[in-house]
Every structure is written in structure tokens, then in C-alpha cells.
């Protein structure tokens, strides 16, 4: 229940970031805007991590076979570039619908691979959310 609430909160956070970044991108351009984003992020993440851990970050041990887990930040950057490129062409809501389909299908696959159960409840919930999203696209067009 706590984590469900945190996941919803994460989405709210994303919405606010998108609004702020739209303005940032309009003034500074996409590439500088994205750089500023990660720069500010690091400016917050670094002191936050140091304070919370009492300046004892510990060491990082990552085996060669799991090097790909270091690429999340770079993948996020590429996602921003792709989304910015296609959104003006096909519209934010249409992008969101297709993104969601890709996310949830891949997410379910990742969960199965990680041994995390993908219950009927999760699938039904995801389909209802998708139905709502498609309904919103139609309502927006009218």
C-alpha cells in the first residue's frame, strides 16, 4: 500500500518535471535543457547521498555480467531525445498511449524474468488504465 502510494507520487513528480522542462527546453533548447536537468539532478543527488549515509557511501562492486545496470541514466537521456522528437509530430496523448503499451508489456516481461508475480489484478488494472488513456485521447479530439 505504501509503495503503491509512492508510485502514484512518482507519477505526480514526473508531471511537474515535464511542465518545468517544457519551459526550460523552449528557452535553452533540447540538448542544453537535458544537460541542465542531469546537472541539477547530480547537484541534489550527491549532497543528499552524502548526508543520508553520514559521508560513508561505501564501495561499488558490480560484476562484468551486470555492467548494463550502469546504463539507466544514459537510457533515460535517449528516451528524452526520442520523446521530444516524436511528440510534436504525433501529439502527446498518442505518444503516451503507445509508450504505456511498450512500458507495461516490457515491464511485465521484466517482472516475470525477475520472478516477481504478474497477477490477474495487475493485468486487469493495466488494461483499465490503458482503456482510460485511450478514452482520454478520444475525448481530447472532440
Amino acid at each position: 500500500m505504501l509503495y503503491s502510494f509512492l508510485a502514484l507520487l512518482s507519477g505526480v513528480n514526473v508531471a511537474v518535471s515535464i511542465m518545468l522542462n517544457a519551459r526550460l527546453g523552449a528557452v535553452k533548447g533540447l540538448y542544453k535543457g537535458a544537460f541542465i536537468n542531469y546537472f541539477l539532478g547530480l547537484c541534489v543527488a550527491l549532497p543528499l547521498a552524502l548526508i543520508v549515509t553520514g559521508f560513508r557511501l561505501g564501495s561499488v562492486k558490480i560484476s562484468l555480467s551486470e555492467l548494463f545496470i550502469l546504463t539507466g541514466g544514459s537510457i533515460g537521456y535517449l528516451v528524452v531525445l526520442i520523446n521530444n522528437n516524436i511528440t510534436p509530430k504525433i501529439g502527446i496523448l498518442y505518444v503516451t498511449v503507445i509508450l504505456f503499451i511498450g512500458q507495461i508489456a516490457t515491464g511485465a516481461l521484466m517482472d516475470i524474468l525477475a520472478g516477481e508475480p504478474v497477477s490477474i489484478g495487475k493485468i486487469t488494472g493495466a488494461l483499465l488504465i490503458l482503456a482510460g488513456l485511450i478514452y482520454l485521447v478520444k475525448a481530447e479530439k472532440e
Binding site: 508510485a7 505526480v12 515491464g107 511485465a108 495487475k122 488504465i129
Partner: peptide, 24 residues
């Protein structure tokens, strides 16, 4: 938040609920 959620409720639920929060 995503890291916390993914490791506790999985990717499907994290992304599903986050989208609802975002749209609302």
C-alpha cells in the same frame, strides 16, 4: 521513488500507477 517501488511491487505496478498519478 521508482527504485524503491520497483524493488517492492515490481515494474508493471510501478509504471502503471505512476502513469495514473502523472495523468491526473
Amino acid at each position: 521513488l521508482n527504485n524503491l517501488c520497483v524493488n517492492n511491487i515490481g515494474v508493471t505496478m510501478t509504471l502503471g500507477l505512476a502513469l495514473v498519478g502523472q495523468i491526473i
